[in-house]
């Protein structure tokens, strides 16, 4: 490569650098997720006033939904949440259930759902909503690959989020990551509950635990990536390091024979 070309590249890189650092000025506001390592990688937590993308395979849709709901619960605090979804995704993975949301420890009263017929109107609605600073977070749920959600659309959403301070969460089910202006990009899978006690390792009656996610941070604009098992704590409404028990010790009811209480094994 010639010297002139190299210098041109260097100038462009410098410009990109400047644009990116200009963004940082707006993005000092971060919310800790509760998971130590993840918060470390994210420099203290998930940035508000930015776009975050969560991808998953088609069958893992509900795990990604739970993760996004957790993120939304963290960043929105007590402000309302606008959930924009496409008609089609409801057929594929079921409708978002408010009873289930309540069980995760989140507040269904602050959720407004927009049932968009197609991707265009979903995108337009989210861009409009991201500009409204009365909201805490906007979730855009899209199923499958979409041509419409390109770099331009992503840039539009980012700008709207930056100017208003609202956080945008893109839930992309059954889609492959493409270049975008997102602050972070995640790939989600459901994680196993920790194994039961040694006495009955394969017992099908072993009890359940809190929702667990196998989260991979694929891209992080201002820090390293990583992969963690994250558990959602429904009582404290935050993520945590995976507990080794499938249920909290205090809650193990008397009628259950072997609540995997003393099994000190780190799952992952």
């Amino acid at each position: 490569m010639s010297g002139a070309r190299m210098s041109a590249l260097a100038i462009l890189r410098g410009q990109i650098e400047r644009i990116q650092t200009a963004e940082i000025v707006h993005q000092h506001d971060r919310v800790a997720l509760g998971h130590g390592q993840a918060d470390g990688a994210l420099k203290g937590g998930l940035a508000r006033a930015a776009i975050h993308e969560v991808f998953c395979e088609g069958r893992q849709g509900v795990a990604a939904t739970g993760f996004v709901m957790g993120l939304a619960g963290r960043v929105a605090a007590r402000k309302p949440l606008l959930w924009v979804r496409q008609d089609f995704s409801e057929v594929e993975t079921g409708a978002l259930s408010m009873s289930g949301l309540r069980e995760l420890g989140l507040d269904p009263r602050r959720v407004v759902t927009v049932r968009a017929a197609d991707v265009e109107s979903a995108l337009r609605t989210s861009a409009d909503a991201l500009a409204c600073d009365a909201l805490g977070a906007v979730v855009l749920e899209l199923w499958g690959e979409t041509r419409q959600f390109d770099l331009v659309a992503s840039r539009k959403l980012t700008l709207a989020a930056q100017s208003s301070g609202v956080t945008g969460l893109m839930l992309r089910m059954a889609a492959q990551p493409l270049p975008s202006t997102a602050e972070t990009r995640w790939m989600l899978r459901a994680a196993h509950s920790p194994p039961g006690p040694a006495s009955m390792p394969a017992a099908p009656w072993s009890v359940w635990g809190a929702p667990r996610f196998d989260a991979t941070l694929l891209r992080n604009r201002h820090g390293p990536c990583g992969r963690w098992i994250m558990e959602w704590n429904c009582d404290e409404c935050q993520f945590s390091e995976p507990s080794t028990y499938s249920q909290p010790v205090a809650a193990a009811p008397a009628d259950r024979q072997d609540s995997a209480v003393f099994q000190q094994r780190r799952a992952g």
Partner: peptide, 27 residues
Amino acid sequence: HLAAAMQAEWPARVESEPPLRPLRLFD
């Protein structure tokens, strides 16, 4: 129904139990 929804009384969840109801429900 915005005002009504903001004031609605939802049944409380059982503390320290894992979720009893699914997050996504099929019609």
